[in-house]
């Protein structure tokens, strides 16, 4: 009989892990809290650093899941996990030979950084909102006009102990560069300013894209964090920051403020961890067995991790980790052959 593995989460990590397991003769079952599969990538327009449409990655994943008849339970949350299965909300028990947690992350709620006026002032949007606007094919200011000056603020809800998010969300720097280029392509006459604390270009092609943004697109980079955004009488937004490289405060009016919202740990990580005696890292993400050879393993035999459940990750890293997780699960199932 086929061994059965429950995968918690139907985003990119969960789907890729399921496909990896299925091709090795294991029967995966995906449980997705949302009513639709695809996770956060579903709402993304294009991917850094290649500007690949997100659908080009997501659609083949979803198609393969359908073609291979992988069972997906959508619209139902998992309440407890164990190495021999999970309990769903409502009490239903799903037995399994192993469990993979691919529950991902939660987008930081920009309203918590009240000083930026997200949800209060027009034309203050998040990086996720901008992707949605690009998906809809229309990026405009609230009054329908085109922006002439745009500020992109990095590290909103990242590296910020004030909002209990001391970690780096890793992908926002390159997203800021990507979105700056996309905005500049849409509005060539506009000035685009990136406000950053550090620029962390860790991936292949990232530094090159950063350089291109500077040299070919004339995108401005100011090292300093915006301290507050306020409304102006003409409907624009005034921002203040320090230009730390000149050691002077700086202010300007802008038409649009894009907040690079970070990745934070899911609120239910603690409960899920408690149900299976797993560890939660100080930043709230799940703690892997070790960061080198045990990145996809939990401290408990039979429970595995894939993707951003353990830390902020790019889609590329998530997909690579999904393959790794499938390998680790098969390895475990072989060792525990009945």
């Amino acid at each position: 009989m086929k061994r059965r593995v429950v995968i918690v989460g139907g985003g990119a990590a969960g789907m890729a892990t399921a496909l990896g397991l299925e091709s090795r003769g294991v029967e995966p079952v995906i449980v997705e809290r949302d009513t639709e599969m695809g996770g956060k990538v579903r709402n993304w327009h294009k991917l850094f650093p290649t500007f690949t449409p997100a659908s080009e990655i997501l659609d083949p994943l979803r198609r393969s899941i359908a073609e291979r008849n992988i069972e997906c339970r959508t619209g139902v949350a998992v309440e407890t996990v164990a190495s021999d299965g999970v309990t769903l909300a409502g009490g239903e028990r799903m037995a399994a030979d192993a469990v993979v947690m691919a529950t991902g992350f939660t987008l930081f709620d920009a309203r918590r950084k009240q000083e930026y006026g997200y949800g209060i002032y027009d034309n203050v949007v998040t990086s996720a909102d901008l992707e949605q606007m690009m998906n809809s094919g229309r990026v405009r200011l609230a009054d329908g006009s085109m922006p002439r000056r745009i500020a992109i603020l990095h590290c909103v809800g990242s590296r910020d102990e004030k909002v209990c998010q001391s970690h780096c969300s890793k992908v926002c720097c390159i997203t800021g560069v990507k979105q700056a280029i996309e905005l500049k392509k849409m509005f060539p006459e506009a000035d685009v300013f990136n406000f950053y604390m550090d620029i962390r270009m860790f991936g292949p092609g990232y530094e090159e894209l950063y350089r291109e943004a500077q040299q070919s697109y004339n995108i401005h980079f100011v090292r300093g964090r915006i301290s507050e955004a306020s409304p102006m009488i003409n409907g624009r937004i005034q921002i203040k920051a320090e230009d730390t490289l000149t050691g002077r405060p700086l202010k300007m009016s802008i038409d649009m403020l894009v907040l690079m919202v970070g990745m934070r740990a899911n609120d239910d990580n603690g409960l899920l961890a408690a149900s299976a005696s797993l560890d939660v890292a100080p930043n709230g993400f799940m703690q892997s067995r070790d960061p080198f050879t045990g990145a996809v393993r939990s401290p408990r035999e039979g429970i595995f991790y894939a993707g951003a459940v353990t830390a902020p990750k790019s889609l590329a890293d998530t997909l690579a980790e999904a393959a790794l997780a499938a390998d680790a699960v098969v390895d475990y199932l072989n060792r525990t052959q009945r």
């Binding site: 009240q114 000083e115 507050e228 306020s230 102006m232 009488i233």
Partner: peptide, 26 residues
């Protein structure tokens, strides 16, 4: 809170006035 205090704004609104939000309010 500190960014959008309501203590005076609440009085102004209750008594028929209109609160002005301007760039250097804070």
């Amino acid at each position: 809170g500190s960014e959008f205090p309501y203590v005076l704004a609440g009085m102004i609104e209750s008594w028929g006035g209109e609160v002005v939000d301007y760039p250097e309010r804070r």
